[in-house]
Amino acid sequence: MEARDLMTADVETVHQDDEISDVLQQLASRDFTGFPVVDDEDRLLGVVTQRDFVELFQPKSHTVWIPIGLPPFLETLDYGFDLSWNELETELDLARNASKPVKTIMTEDVLTVEPDADVDDVLAILAADERDVNRVPVVEDDVIVGIVTRQDVLRALHEERSG
């Protein structure tokens, strides 16, 4: 089984210059959690996900990590306290960032496969803990030709083993 057998060929993408507010609205009306970001020639430049929007509206600089050590524990535990997360600040962040291009918040280092990649190559990306990837773009000559999701792989493996 290859990536081309699993992928959805009709991929919904966003353009690198689309405004953050427009992409956020598109994302809110979809059943998935991110978009591949492309240029004018449909070359894959990155991905933008719900996580990117969360980080945009809850900057790490507002979180204070405090080590707390209580007996009988030998090591301290770090607890994060958000000092500024409130409705007004969220609205100000949205207003400040709404018209910026989505390329300013996208993840550029995207793990991809080619159409002839083996299902094990796709699984290796989806199963890796460090990146928590939910979808793998399928590219040919840097142009996105499809996308494989965790659900696609699970469905195909289930059908293969039960059929």
Rank of each mutant, 00 (worst) to 15 (best):
F32G: 02
V139A: 02
T76V: 12
E91L: 14
N97R: 00
L45R: 15
L154F: 15
A95C: 05
V143A: 13
V136C: 09
T33D: 04
E130D: 14
P59Y: 07
I147T: 01
E75I: 05
E19A: 15
V23H: 13
P67E: 06
D142W: 10
G69V: 06
A128Y: 02
I144S: 09
V102T: 03
D129C: 03
D31M: 09
D10K: 14
T90Q: 14
F32K: 03
A156C: 11
K100V: 01
G34C: 06
I125M: 09
A3Q: 06
T49P: 04
V138S: 14
I125C: 08
L111W: 10
T49H: 07
R43V: 05
Q16V: 11
D120W: 09
L123D: 09
G69E: 10
I68N: 07
R51V: 12
V37E: 01
I147N: 00
D10H: 11
A127S: 13
S61F: 04
L45G: 07
E2S: 09
R150P: 00
D10E: 13
D42Y: 03
Q151G: 05
Q50E: 15
K100W: 03
L83H: 08
F35L: 02
V113L: 02
A127L: 14
G80T: 02
T8N: 13
R51S: 13
P137M: 07
L92S: 14
Q25W: 08
E91F: 04
T149F: 03
L154D: 05
P67C: 03
P59V: 04
Q25S: 13
V153P: 00
E41I: 02
V11M: 08
F32E: 03
F73T: 11
R131H: 15
D82M: 05
E89S: 10
L56G: 14
M7K: 03
T33F: 02
E2R: 15
L44K: 11
R43W: 03
D116V: 01
R4E: 09
E55P: 01
L45I: 06
P72K: 12
A28I: 00
E12S: 08
D5F: 10
D129I: 03
P137F: 09
I147Y: 01
M106W: 01
N134P: 03
A9F: 03
D93H: 14
W85P: 05
F81A: 09
E130T: 10
Q58S: 15
E87Y: 13
T90K: 12
G146I: 02
F35S: 02
Q151N: 11
T33N: 09
D120Q: 08
D39I: 05
L111I: 07
A156N: 13
V145N: 04
L24F: 15
D109A: 11
L24W: 14
L94A: 14
E2L: 13
P71Q: 11
E130W: 01
L94D: 02
A124T: 12
L45P: 08
D78F: 06
